[in-house]
C-alpha cells in the first residue's frame, strides 16, 4: 500500500480544490488522529480542527504538496496540546476498554492491546512511534514533523519501542 507521502507526490502539483484535498487526506488524517489519541470521537474533533485551520489558510499555500506536511504536523500538535492542556493521560488510560463506536477490525483484541500499549507512552513519544511506523517516515522526517532534534526522536522511538515490547510481552 503506498504511503500517504507517495500518494501526495503522485497527485502532483495540479490545481486542487479544497474538497479534493480534504478527500485525499481525510482517511489518513483520521487514522493518525486515532492512533495518537486512541479515541475515535477525540480523533474526529482534532482532525476536523486541523482541516479547518489548514484549509482555512490554504489559499496561501504555494505548493499543494506541502498540504499533508502541514496537516500532519497540525494534527500532532493538536493532539499533544490536548494531552498537555487537559492532563487527561490518566483518564485516557482508564478509557482503554472496548469502544462500541470504534471501527471494526480484523482482530479487536490485538487492536485493543496495541492501543493500550501505545497509551503508556508519553504523547510526543507516541507521536514519534506512530509517525515512524505508520507513515514509514525516516527519523529525520519525524524530527521535522515534531520540530524536535533527530537525536531526541531516535531516543523517543527507541525507548518507545522498548516500552511497547514490554507492554506487549515480546522479546527484544
Amino acid at each position: 500500500m503506498p504511503s500517504v507521502t507517495e500518494r501526495t507526490e503522485r497527485a502532483g502539483t495540479a490545481t486542487t480544490s479544497l474538497e479534493e484535498l480534504y478527500r485525499r487526506h481525510v482517511d489518513d488524517a483520521l487514522a493518525l488522529g486515532f492512533l495518537l489519541t486512541g479515541d475515535r470521537a477525540l480523533a474526529e474533533d482534532l482532525v476536523q480542527d486541523a482541516f479547518v485551520r489548514v484549509l482555512g489558510r490554504f489559499h496561501d499555500l504555494r505548493s499543494r504538496d506541502a498540504f499533508w506536511w502541514y496537516l500532519r504536523r497540525t494534527i500532532v500538535n493538536l493532539a499533544n496540546s490536548h494531552f498537555r492542556r487537559r492532563r487527561v493521560e490518566r483518564a485516557w488510560l482508564e478509557r482503554q476498554r472496548p469502544d462500541p463506536a470504534a471501527p471494526p477490525g480484523p482482530d479487536l483484541e490485538e487492536r485493543d492491546r496495541l492501543l493500550a500499549a501505545l497509551a503508556t507512552l508519553r504523547p510526543e513519544q507516541r507521536a514519534a512511534v506512530v509517525l515512524r511506523y505508520l507513515e514509514d517516515l525516516s527519523e529525520a522526517d519525524v524530527a521535522d514533523a515534531l520540530g524536535r532534534p533527530v537525536g531526541t526522536v531516535k531516543s523517543m522511538v527507541s525507548r518507545g519501542m522498548d516500552r511497547l515490547r514490554e507492554e506487549l510481552g515480546e522479546d527484544a
Binding site: Y22, F34, R111, V130
Partner: peptide
C-alpha cells in the same frame, strides 16, 4: 501493519465532511 490494522475501518461520513468543509470555508 499493526498500526494500519488498529486504525482500519475509520472512515469519515458525509456529515463529518459537510461539517469540516463548512467550518473550513467559513474560516477561509
Amino acid at each position: 501493519d499493526l498500526l494500519r490494522r488498529a486504525a482500519a475501518g475509520l472512515r469519515a461520513d458525509e456529515a463529518f465532511e459537510r461539517r469540516t468543509l463548512r467550518r473550513a470555508r467559513r474560516r477561509r
